[in-house]
Simulated scan of single mutants.
Amino acid sequence: MGYLRKHLLFVIVPLLMSVYFLGASMKMPHDAALLPQILAVLVIIFSVAMIFNAKKDAPAQDKETAENPPAKINVQHVVVFVAAIAVYIYLIPILGYFIATPLYMVVMYAYLKAIGLLKSIIISVCFSAFIYALFVWFLKLPIPVGFLEHFMGY
């Protein structure tokens, strides 16, 4: 498959999702809609830029790919990640975002053997704290807390 076609396939999904989210955000209150609209517009701009960049680079990349074939995709990793994302999405309403997200991140870091356990725990806790500070504290937007709802007074 050609370089340009691969990039087009990769760009279609985020582009369509951004257009959908942009339309859906129009139905939100103005204050809540601002961030999704900005992010959707940014993804649309970057997607279109990626298409132009891929079109510009396609001839050189097709020649390079013919000379040096790319590495094969590890299908097992893809299947594990898709399954893990499905389980993560399923667990968010049950466990809550602040338990499911660090758990997902630590498990995925461990699966990839990317970093040590202590670093993965620190990164996932810091990421969750940042998300809490941004969305709950600063933007005053609710995040699913699962069974912690009874303890947090929601």
Rank of each mutant, 00 (worst) to 15 (best):
86 A>R: 08
39 L>W: 11
41 V>L: 14
55 K>F: 03
70 P>C: 04
26 M>K: 02
127 F>K: 00
50 M>N: 13
59 P>I: 03
65 T>F: 11
98 F>Y: 14
69 P>K: 05
64 E>N: 15
31 D>R: 13
28 M>D: 08
99 I>Y: 01
95 L>P: 00
152 M>P: 00
12 I>K: 07
72 K>H: 05
74 N>A: 13
83 A>D: 04
86 A>K: 02
1 M>S: 05
39 L>V: 15
38 I>H: 10
136 V>T: 12
9 L>Q: 09
26 M>Y: 09
11 V>C: 13
75 V>Q: 07
75 V>Y: 06
22 L>V: 00
149 E>N: 12
61 Q>V: 01
13 V>W: 10
10 F>H: 10
127 F>T: 13
114 A>F: 04
128 S>D: 09
11 V>T: 13
56 K>V: 02
45 I>D: 07
139 L>N: 06
86 A>G: 12
144 P>C: 09
51 I>Y: 06
2 G>D: 12
146 G>L: 09
140 K>C: 11
135 F>R: 03
60 A>L: 08
33 A>S: 15
118 L>R: 06
34 L>H: 09
129 A>S: 14
152 M>H: 02
29 P>V: 10
65 T>H: 07
11 V>H: 05
30 H>R: 12
94 I>Y: 10
65 T>W: 07
141 L>P: 03
24 A>T: 12
100 A>V: 02
144 P>H: 06
28 M>E: 11
41 V>E: 04
6 K>N: 10
35 L>Q: 09
13 V>E: 05
127 F>W: 13
40 A>S: 15
137 W>G: 03
103 L>W: 00
4 L>A: 08
67 E>H: 13
5 R>N: 07
79 V>E: 01
43 V>G: 08
52 F>I: 03
126 C>D: 04
131 I>R: 05
84 A>E: 09
143 I>C: 08
111 Y>W: 08
74 N>C: 07
66 A>N: 14
30 H>S: 15
63 K>I: 11
63 K>V: 10
28 M>L: 15
51 I>A: 07
83 A>P: 00
23 G>K: 00
84 A>L: 04
93 P>W: 06
43 V>F: 08
103 L>F: 06
29 P>F: 08
38 I>C: 12
44 I>P: 02
138 F>Q: 09
116 G>H: 05
70 P>G: 04
141 L>I: 12
26 M>A: 15
93 P>A: 11
14 P>F: 06
28 M>T: 08
25 S>I: 02
111 Y>F: 14
21 F>Y: 10
79 V>L: 14
5 R>Q: 11
120 S>A: 12
117 L>K: 11
45 I>W: 10
147 F>K: 03
34 L>W: 12
79 V>K: 08
25 S>A: 15
116 G>L: 09
131 I>S: 13
